[in-house]
Design a protein around this nucleic acid. Structure first.
Length: 425
RNA sequence: GGAGAGGUGGCUGAGUGGUUGAAAGCGGCUCCCUGCUAAGGAGUUACAGGAGGUAACUUUUGUCGAGGGUUCGAAUCCCUCUCUCUCCGCCA
């Protein structure tokens, strides 16, 4: 959420800073509403103040019991009654205004960082570094082909269980998924992260807090009898974990790692990535998350990104880091580094992690603060996948494929997986 | 799902209509005292919005789970919702 005061006092600046996302905004109406509510608020305060005084006077009469001159009391009561009706009218006006304002302000995305590259879309993202040697060879198989040959997962039957874009992992496939989750959790834990295992269902308030609502309600699955949604990412419960709190600055940064299943409707992506593990309605993910003091969040962003990279390096998967341009940034993010893993079958890099600095955007929505010089200030939140499990499996299958059709398991995973190759039997 | 009890400040816990943003205790912070780790004393200690001031700050309003209502006046009474706890039922 953006600062309401900024919209009231300098809406042109807000329009300008959001324009690099490719949005053409006119905030004049919103600004007017904020000025109006401000005025009404002052009016209301004055009336309330008067009404309070009258109540105290009456209170005094009762208290002193001095042959309560009923005429005076009646007079005062009349005044009070008069004020009350004015007050309740104003309160109603304020409520309406407030609703209009929050409806609008919650739909405004975060300011892109000045450091993020300016650009319209994906094509203008900037590659900032590469790691590893990409596998290039004739007759490379896709991971879904390998998965079929090695009997690692099923989609056909699963469509009958649920629908398309769901998957059942089988045998070594299931085992590899588990191995990856445990390996990632252990690695992050050893690196100073505290593990949380959050619920998969979250309420609307939590989704609003991290920015998925109100704008993207059609991207999550909803249980409409309960005000609960299937969480699209652990970022949601991790943000909500400290909602409404004022966190002791001595405790910062708080670093969490969480495994969670993630559920996404993937509306509007019909026909894209219909095969394999890349785009599913349900997938597993290990998420890393920081609550940082505002002064340190830029540094924290570098750190969280390298913590995610660390996983790819340990798994020996080639990847590159991409600085997301202003037009391609997610709603809540001010700057994002995507990690893209090499997928040889498509001869390209695919997103496997997205590491974002949301600054105070989510903290403001979720009311998460810390103290500085006796004042409460919003802290900064950062999130990154560390990593998406399904896509990691796809990368391991494709990059580890051998001439004989088997797949080599990365060394660090062998203790978790239990053997060094996946072979047909 | 049925029955009951309850949600008060960082925590514990008073407060059932009148100057109560809220006693007391604990914890936290500041200062003082004491030559030892210990102990004692004084003060201070919620959040948000508005107005005024460069500022330290001053002032005003709101907030006792949330939202409505009754009343001149609500933490206290009424209604709705929500969460927690206990018992029963069901259940991994």
């Amino acid at each position: 959420m953006l600062d309401l005061r900024l919209i009231r006092e300098n809406p042109r600046l807000v329009e300008d800073r959001l324009s690099v996302r490719g949005m053409e905004l006119n905030l004049s109406d919103l600004q007017e509403l904020t000025i109006l509510i401000n005025k009404k608020d002052t009016e209301l305060s004055n009336l309330q103040s008067e009404s309070k005084k009258i109540s105290k006077l009456i209170g005094n009469y009762y208290h002193n019991q001095k042959d309560s001159s009923t005429i005076e009391i009646e007079e005062l009561k009349k005044n009070g009654d008069n004020l009350k009706s004015k007050i309740s009218k104003l309160e109603q006006i304020k409520r309406d205004l407030n609703k209009k304002i929050t409806d609008q302000i919650l739909r405004l995305p975060n300011f892109p960082s000045e450091k993020a590259p300016k650009g319209k879309d994906e094509s203008q993202n900037i590659e900032i570094r590469k790691w590893g040697n990409v596998l290039k060879r004739e007759n490379l198989k896709s991971h879904w082909k390998l998965g079929e040959e090695l009997n690692l997962f099923d989609t056909k039957r699963t469509a009958g269980i649920s629908k398309s874009r769901f998957i059942t992992l089988i045998g070594n496939g299931a085992r590899l998924e588990r191995a990856l989750i445990n390996f990632m959790l252990d690695t992050h834990q050893n690196n100073g992260y505290l593990e949380l295992m959050p619920p998969a269902l979250v309420n609307s308030e939590s989704l609003r807090g991290s920015g998925q609502l109100p704008k993207f309600s059609n991207e999550s699955f909803k249980c409409d009898e309960d005000d609960l949604w299937l969480s699209p990412t652990a970022e949601v419960p991790l943000t909500a974990f400290h909602r409404g709190e004022i966190i002791d600055p001595k405790l910062l940064p708080l670093k969490y790692v969480a495994y969670s299943p993630c559920f996404r409707r993937e509306a509007g992506s019909y026909g894209k990535d219909t095969k394999g593990l890349i785009r599913l309605h349900q997938f597993n993910k290990v998420e890393i998350y920081w609550y940082s003091h505002p002064e340190n969040s830029e540094e924290a962003h570098q750190k969280i990104t390298s913590d995610a990279e660390n996983i790819l390096q340990k798994l020996n998967l080639p990847y590159r880091v991409v600085d997301i341009c202003s037009g391609d940034l997610g709603f809540s993010s001010s700057r994002t580094f995507d990690l893209e893993v090499w997928l040889p079958s498509s001869n390209s890099y695919r997103e496997i992690s997205s590491c974002s600095n949301c600054l105070d955007f989510q903290a403001r929505r979720s009311l998460i603060r810390t103290k500085q010089d006796k004042k409460s200030i919003f802290l900064h939140t950062l999130n990154g996948s560390g990593l998406a499990i399904g896509r990691t499996m796809a990368a391991i299958l494709e990059n580890g494929q051998q001439e004989d059709g088997s797949v080599k398991i990365p060394d660090v995973l062998i203790p978790y997986f239990g053997s060094s190759f996946i072979k047909t039997n």
